[in-house]
Structure formats: structure tokens, C-alpha cells
């Protein structure tokens, strides 16, 4: 039976029109998916960390502790939200609100499968890059408004870091865009149907993954939080649900970064035997696993080394990669 024939759906459908209808349901799905996904990723992170460190991780709530992060979320919602006396009240309040905006908006253009995409935009990739930079702004706002020196250092580091890492990120994306000749997400995926871009662009793919790790402030680039130096960086003063929002944004950004890598380099929804959302989600979560795995293996870089690494290693290599790609495309 066609879902659109149901009376209530039909009414709504008639009222909104097909395009808007898809948007509304898509957004509702996204709003449901974002918190659940981050709860799941927190659990995955704790579980992987546990087993890497030869301990079981959360075990008590639910089978193998799978409900642990939901219970934690309930706890965080019940907690008092403390605003420090000397903090800038409005900025302090706005920062966690704005940090979830990119987390939600970026999902709009991600093509999970040929039909599962909320909105097809001609410049989908640009939208994601534009919005994901907002998180840098909210981190700066949160860190500045906290009026805490640790938070301030963390926030300043975050801004410098995102400037440094956006460049190689865009450069490595550029080489893919040159190849597929489009900024449309679904077309980029469609261009990879026989062979994934990863085969042609391994260097760009690795640079892209490194840069998304840095963009989402994950270890070994987690200087913004840097527990052993800055207590917990920009969200030192945040409590309760506000802290949880920062957390949610971090894990969602991680998923978006992995999804982007899947779209750009790992063939999107294409996979052996059949193609569809299954392959996309599987690949995205595998990449999330890789970032988690990296986090629990390496020490943290120092701030100047982080900058050196971006400006002296990643940018030259990605520029070189872009040049070679352009020449090869032109010649062939």
C-alpha cells in the first residue's frame, strides 16, 4: 500500500506538497537520529576504549551496557545547570545552542542512499563546510563566555586549529571535486560506481581523515579539551545538559566527518552484492571506529607541532596532490 494513500498522511501531504513533506519527515528523522546516534557512539567509544585497554567497559545497564549512555543522558538532564557568576550570561547560554546547529543541518544534504537524502543541493559539499565551521564559533563563544582561563586557552586553540585544518581539508576535497566535476553529493557518489575514489586518491583520503579528526577536536588533536593540560578546555565551566550538548555535537560531527569521507572517497552507498543505505552506514561507522581507535592509541600533539603539521606537512602534500590530479585529469 502506498503510504500517501492514508487519510491523515494524505491531508498533510496535500497541504504541504511532496517537497516540503519530505523535508519535514527528514528533519524529524534527523532530530531523532542525532541524539540516538551520539548516545550510541559514546557507548561504542567507551566499549572500544575498554577492550583496547583490556577491560570490558560499561557492563551494567542493559546487555553489555548498551543503555549506559541513555541513562547518562537522563542524569545530565536532571543536573543543575550552573552559570558562573562572572560569565557572560547570554553568550554562555547561546554557545551550546549554536553548537548543535551544524550537527543537524549537515545531515540534510548527506545522501545515505539514492532516495534517502532530505534535500539535494547543487552545492551540498559547500553547505557542509560552511556549517561545520560554526562549531568553531560556538567553541570560541563558550570558552570566552566562561571567563575561565583554561576555557579561554582552549577556545583560542580551537580557532587557530580550525583555521589551520580547514585548508588541507578543502584542498583534499578539491581533488575529488575535480575528478567528479560536481559539488553535488549524490553525483560525487554516483561517479564512484565502478571504482571508489580512494583508489585514485589515497593521499587525499588520508589527509581528509586526519583533518576531520582535527576539525572535530578528537585525539591526537584534542588540544581544545586536552584533559591533562586544560582540565577540559572550553567546556570546563559547563554542567548538565549544556555540557551534554557539546558532547552531542562532538560525536555528531564525528559521524558527519566519517559520512563525508564515505561520500567523497569510499563510494557512498555502493558496496558488493547490492547497494543501499546499509553499506553507507556500515562504512561510516567503520570510519568512526578508526577515529576512536586512533584516539586510544596516540599521545596528543603540542600546539605548535599541530600547527607545523598542518602548515608544513598537510598543506604542501595536499597542494601537490591537487596539482598532480589536475595535470593527470587534463592530460587524460
Amino acid at each position: 500500500m502506498n503510504m500517501t494513500q492514508l487519510p491523515i498522511i494524505k491531508d498533510v501531504y496535500g497541504f504541504l506538497g511532496p517537497d516540503l513533506m519530505a523535508c519535514v519527515t527528514g528533519l524529524l528523522l534527523i532530530l531523532m537520529f542525532v541524539p540516538l546516534n551520539s548516545a550510541f557512539l559514546v557507548w561504542v567509544e567507551r566499549k572500544v576504549a575498554g577492550h583496547i585497554q583490556l577491560r570490558p567497559g560499561p557492563m551494567e545497564v542493559g546487555p553489555h551496557g548498551i543503555l549506559q549512555s541513555l541513562i547518562d543522558a537522563v542524569k545530565l538532564m536532571c543536573k543543575e545547570m550552573i552559570t558562573p557568576d562572572l560569565a557572560d550570561k547570554y553568550l554562555f547560554w547561546i554557545a551550546p545552542c549554536t553548537v548543535v546547529i551544524p550537527a543537524i543541518v549537515c545531515f540534510v544534504v548527506i545522501p545515505f542512499s539514492p532516495i534517502m537524502q532530505v534535500r539535494e543541493l547543487n552545492v551540498g559539499i559547500l553547505l557542509i563546510f560552511a556549517f561545520s565551521s560554526i562549531s568553531g564559533l560556538s567553541i570560541l563563544m563558550g570558552g570566552w563566555a566562561s571567563n575561565n582561563k583554561y576555557s579561554l586557552i582552549g577556545a583560542v586553540r580551537a580557532v587557530a586549529q580550525s583555521i589551520a585544518y580547514e585548508i588541507p581539508l578543502l584542498l583534499s576535497t578539491m581533488s575529488v571535486i575535480i575528478m567528479s566535476n560536481s559539488l553535488k553529493m549524490s553525483e560525487i557518489v554516483a561517479a564512484q560506481s565502478p571504482v571508489w575514489n580512494f583508489v585514485w586518491q589515497p593521499v587525499a583520503a588520508i589527509i581528509f581523515i586526519i583533518c576531520t579528526t582535527a576539525e572535530t577536536n578528537r585525539a591526537p588533536f584534542d588540544l581544545v579539551e586536552a584533559e591533562s593540560e586544560l582540565v577540559s578546555g572550553f567546556h570546563t565551566e559547563y554542567t548538565g545538559m549544556r555540557d551534554a550538548l557539546f558532547f552531542m555535537a562532538e560525536y555528531t560531527a564525528m559521524f558527519i566527518g566519517s559520512s563525508m569521507a564515505v561520500v567523497l572517497f569510499f563510494g557512498g552507498w555502493y558496496g558488493p552484492f547490492f547497494s543501499g543505505i546499509f553499506w553507507f552506514v556500515l562504512k561510516a561507522y567503520l570510519l568512526v571506529f578508526v577515529t576512536v581507535w586512533i584516539r586510544w592509541t596516540f599521545p596528543r600533539l603540542r600546539f605548535d607541532q599541530l600547527m607545523n603539521f598542518a602548515w608544513k606537512v598537510l598543506i604542501p602534500i595536499s597542494l601537490l596532490n591537487l596539482l598532480v590530479t589536475a595535470i593527470v585529469i587534463k592530460v587524460l
Binding site: A49, Q53, L54, R55, A226, S228, F298, R300
Partner: peptide
């Protein structure tokens, strides 16, 4: 020392 630098996992291997 290694944990201060940011690697948490070696700490627990050493702890073992």
C-alpha cells in the same frame, strides 16, 4: 608521564 602527554592506553598496559 605518557598519560600527561595524552596517551591513555599505555598507562593501563603499564598498570597491568
Amino acid at each position: 608521564f605518557v598519560m600527561g602527554i595524552g596517551a591513555y592506553t599505555p598507562f593501563l598496559y603499564g598498570w597491568d
